[in-house]
Every structure is written in C-alpha cells, then in structure tokens.
Design a protein around this nucleic acid. Sequence first.
DNA 1: GACATCTACTTACACGTGACAGTAGCTCCG
DNA 2: CGGAGCTACTGTCACGTGTAAGTAGATGTC
Lengths: 326, 326
Amino acid sequence: MTGGERSTSTDVARRAGVSRATVSYVLNGRDDQSIPEATRQRVLTAARDLGYVPHAASRALRAGRSPLVLLINTGVPWSTNVTEVEDGLTALVAATGRSLVVWRRRAPEDLAATLANLEPCVAISTDTLSEGERTLLAAVRVPLLEADLGTPSAASATALQVGHLAAAGHRRLGYLTTTEPDLLRFAEPRTAGFRTACADARLPEPAMAAVPGGTTFDVAAVAAVLAAWRSAPQPVTAVACFNDLHAAACLAAAATLGLTVPGDLAVIGVDDDIFAPLTQPPLTTVHLEPRAFVDHLWRQARHLIDDAPAPEPFLARSTLVVRASA
Amino acid sequence: MTGGERSTSTDVARRAGVSRATVSYVLNGRDDQSIPEATRQRVLTAARDLGYVPHAASRALRAGRSPLVLLINTGVPWSTNVTEVEDGLTALVAATGRSLVVWRRRAPEDLAATLANLEPCVAISTDTLSEGERTLLAAVRVPLLEADLGTPSAASATALQVGHLAAAGHRRLGYLTTTEPDLLRFAEPRTAGFRTACADARLPEPAMAAVPGGTTFDVAAVAAVLAAWRSAPQPVTAVACFNDLHAAACLAAAATLGLTVPGDLAVIGVDDDIFAPLTQPPLTTVHLEPRAFVDHLWRQARHLIDDAPAPEPFLARSTLVVRASA
DNA sequence: GACATCTACTTACACGTGACAGTAGCTCCG
DNA sequence: CGGAGCTACTGTCACGTGTAAGTAGATGTC
C-alpha cells in the first residue's frame, strides 16, 4: 500500500481471490447479485488492506457523467453570506454522493479550458454568464443554473428596512446604493424593493443616491450626499443602505459632518456582516437567511440533473437585527 | 451540434474525412507528425463546427493524472486575503493548462468521498489535515502541500506594527489576539513575532491578552482587558491586534470606556480588510501582500507535480497602511 | 435420468482519449 | 529498376471502471 502505484480493483480482486466483477458488485453493494457473506468480507478486507479508492476519472468515464457540481464564482469580495451559501450547498451536494467544487472565473474565455479539465454534471453560476459561455456549456451538455442570489431576498430585506424606520417615526428616507457593475444584479432589485416598500408604507418619495463602492469607498462622496439630503426642504432623517459596507461608509460620513447616529440620522444596512456589531454605533441591519435559499437552489439543480420535480417559486425570509444605529 | 449527444473526436474525424488519430494529432498540436495545412484546417473547422470539447474524464484516464488542482479550505470566514490568494492561485494554475478548484471541507471524514469523485494532481490545504486524511491522500498518490499562510507573514507584519507604534513614541504596548481554535495557526506565529519585535525594539515586556473572536465578538470583554491595561502601573498606550476585526472590537471597546483614539490609545490591526477605511477613526493596519506568497505556493506545488526545482525559502513582505487610529 | 432452477461466480465489452507502431504511396539516388 | 527514405496518414492498444450476458456446478422435480 505504501510503495509503487496506487491499487486498482484488479489488485483487490487478486488479493481476495475473486474476479474484478465480484469486487465491483461487493463494493457497490448490488443486491441483485447473490454473494455469500464470506466472499463479501474477503473482498471488503482486501480493499481496506490495500487502501483502495476507485479511480475518479474511470468512474466518470464509465458512468458517462461526473459526480461533480461546479459552482462558478466571480472574484467579487462578498459578505459572509457567500461563505454560508457555499457551506450549505457543499453539504447538500455531498448528501447525494456528489462533490461541490468552486471555480473562480476570472474572464469569460477561461471557461473553455476549465470544461476540458473538469466536466461537471451541472454548473451553478452566481453571476450572469456570457452568450459564449452558455453555448459552450450547451455543447458539452452541461445544464446551467443561473442563480439569482439577489431578487428572492430583495423584497423581504427592503421591507424590513422600511418597516423598522417607519415604526421609529421616520417619514423622509434616503436610499444609498452602489454604482459597482458587478453588484448591480443585487443592487437593482433592492432599489426597486425599497421604492415599493416606501409606497406601501404611504411614505413620501424617498431620496435615492448611488456611490462607487465595491472594494473601496469614497467617504467624502457619501458625506456630500448626506449633506445634500440634510439641507433639503424636507430633510432626510434615516438612510437605508444597499449593504453593511455602504452603511459603514454612511456612519463614517455622518461622523465627518458632525451628525449623531441615530439621533440626527438613523442608518440601517443589509447583510449582518461580520463587522456590523463593531461599528460605532453598532449597526442595525437585516440578516439574510441563506439556508432556505440554498435549499431551493439545490432543488433546482436536482431538477436539471435527476429529473427531480421542479421546486415551487421561492421567496427568501430575512430577519431584522436591531442594534443601535437605527 | 444542438440536439442529441455531445460530439466526440470520432465525430470530428468522420466530418473531416480522416482518422481519429489524425484529429488527435492536430488538436494537440503535435509537431512530430507531418500534417499538411489543408488537412489541419479541415480538422480544425470540423471541430469548431461541432463545438467539440475533449471529454475531461477520458483525458484524465488516458493521461493517468488529472489536470485539477484541489484547494482545500475550511469554512472559517476569512478576510479579503483569502479571495486574493484564491484569485492569484487560479491564474497561476490556469497558466499551466490546469484548473484550480476549491473544495470546502466540513469534516475530516468528507475527504474520502470527494477523492472518489475527483482525483487532483495535487492537493493544497490551507488547514492542517488529520492523520487519516494524509494516509488517504497517500493511498491515492496525491501529493499534499500543507500551506502555512500564517508564519511567512507573521514576522514582517508584527515588525511593522511595533515599528510604527515605537516610532510614534509608544513604549508600553498591548497585544490583543484570539482564542478561536481555527485561527490559532495564524495567531500563534503573530504573537511570537510581536514578542520578538518588541524585544528587538528594546521595548518593555508587552501586555498580552486573548479574547474569543472568530465570527462574533464580546466588546465588553475587550473593554475589560483595556480597562485593566489602562489602570496598570505602566499604562498601555497602544494596542496591536491580531487582525482588523479585533482592532475594530478594540475601537468599539475604547469608545465604551470613553477613550479617544489615537489620543488616549493607539490601535493598529493586520489584514487591511475591506471595512478598515470605514471605522472611526479609520484603521491603521498592515496590508499583507499575498501575490508573492501565492507565487511561492504554486512553485512548491509544481515541485510536487512536475519535478520542478524546489523554491527557496520564503519570507512575505507586508506594507504599512497608515490611516488615523495609530 | 432428463431437465429446470438456482447460486456464485467469470468473461467480455464499452466509455473517449492519446500515442505507438505500422504502412501505402511517392520521390530520389545510384 | 531496386530499394532507401520520406510524407501522410491509419489501426490498435491501454487507461480503470460498471455491468450485461454467460456458465459451471449444485440441487430439486417429475
């Protein structure tokens, strides 16, 4: 087991004194073959002694499809939610005997090379793929699941933001979102959801602003937005933000303007990111529940792989985390 | 190309009117075979027309080893550095025609199932693996690279912290680290490095404290530590932290004690995390340069795969990012 | 005793690829 | 005009697996 080449099912067969087919039947637990317990044990111990692990490539070739699920990620530095999604999906995929692997997509043209190296049974993308990538996946007959992480949670999250601010008596709200192109698929549904929630709550038209902010923030730009909102005829008294990073920038900007939070200005985020309890004041935010979403995602994927029934449409639930900033 | 099964090299051969061997020679660009340009083009266009992509499993089976590099990650929610490491490694691996895939390891016993699904040419783990996992990898002849992300950068990062604080006139320093078991392999070399740096700078023995803090922080506990340090005979005037999250907790704790930063207490972190510019005051920290480290990591991996020369020992460089907290 | 049925296997094939070894047909040299 | 050497290919094998089809021997039935 230590030296030389890795052992194959032929080695196991030789050691157990049976044919390779018998080994295969035992190891795959086929119950339509009659195999006496003594033989079964001989095969099992031989396999254990040799440290036998079936060859992944051979199995995939024989089976005609691989047991790998490819999760295509962009390199956008996300919140802790990504980790939760990946963890949850890893567990669900593993429960079906498959394995989830994450691939970081740097450019659209990288997919071809990766597909020649690794052919998954399904690809799940959290990003929108290019037309070329879609035809490529179609050519190798890999079903694609384009997962919209944003929309399902947008309505629930923004409703909680507006509900909390309105309950505290705020009437004139501001919404601070991002201009970052990579984040637009999250930002747009939230912006729309926020508008709807304000209308539903019979609030006046909210003030809207977008600032650059994916990895770095221009606090001065945020401060300029806040200053304008404060000097308006009907001053904004509460700001809802696209995510916790924007909310943190908002807190920093408020501090430079000498505004107290939440006294002069209430601030609320989305994500319940890891640093949210550590801001000053601690950030009131919305915690997205990825668990249910991941569940739905995997059900969609199984619909594509196994002809499992298509899941019902899905609406995420979120929970409000009240700290001190709003 | 649209309907039915995916196309194989046999389909390409038939369409181009040559044998499968010729197709293979053309597509793999073998220059020891003499193939006239006309034939070459016929094969190439046939392949393009059919959207031919070689079957990954077959290639791996034939080649005897797979073109996949497995990066084994724990689920610890890390800093943006992880993203940078993954991105950099993805690019380097892709440049050799291989693909990097990331696998989230939830429990040590999960590796067996994954190895039966996917057999990489090398496994890179950012975590310490169990004995069982090591023997498993040995059994399938997959070389393992246990990457220590912590030690190479520890000396450089802590030296920068101490150097900056000492240059500002601080003599009595505190070090705030974590008790989180998953982070200990990063924390321990930094703690040691900090002690050494203090001694090298001829500073008095620093005050050391560890608080729980991986995903959640107990700001009150940090405040208790700070209060004790401040009321000591020789009060601590500057705190270096294990990472930026601990530094943020430190800022929050200082605020609850009514301490001004950096006036009463200077605070410095490590990581240059995404929220670091947004704390109040903006956080002075150490930016780790993962680029060089990733380079070294991949060189080590190639030494294991291709018998490339072993790289020289490596010491990370870091840079100080001076903002306002120290 | 002929025949069917059952157990406990084994033999043989296919998956798609890469590459070694062969070979038909042509050219060129002496 | 024989054969050496070249070009432009092709036939065939092996990688390790899962499984359908086959089969030797034992047992049971009439």
